[in-house]
Design a protein around this nucleic acid. Sequence first.
DNA 1: GGTTTGACCCTAA
DNA 2: ATTAGGGCCAAAC
Length: 105
Amino acid sequence: MNFYEKVYRLVKQIPQGQVSTYGLLASQISSPRAAQLVGFALRSLPAKTTVPWQRVVNSAGMISIENLNFPKEEQVKRLQQEGIKVEFKDGNFWVDLGKYLWQMR
DNA sequence: GGTTTGACCCTAA
DNA sequence: ATTAGGGCCAAAC
């Protein structure tokens, strides 16, 4: 099984209305230090995919997308449609992790 | 097959 | 507390 598949499967398991972080996903997949790889995997996602990539943010709850197929606005829009509050702060979008963070048990 | 890069994280100053 | 730098793992060059 590829690293990508693991990432995709795990991300697909995130329920609607909740979010997760790169580091957390990485810890659950293979090694806790591979957070960057999770982002790398999501980066290679095709424009049309069933993977809810929008529910993945960095450890601080910030959206760091800059130049990709999906602009930040798109992600924020989708998150808001799922009932997640996104606040605009200093040029970036933020999510309250304490409220919406999804933890796998 | 060695080097660079990346939607990041952690530690130290 | 905030900022800066190094490190980690896997793919692309």
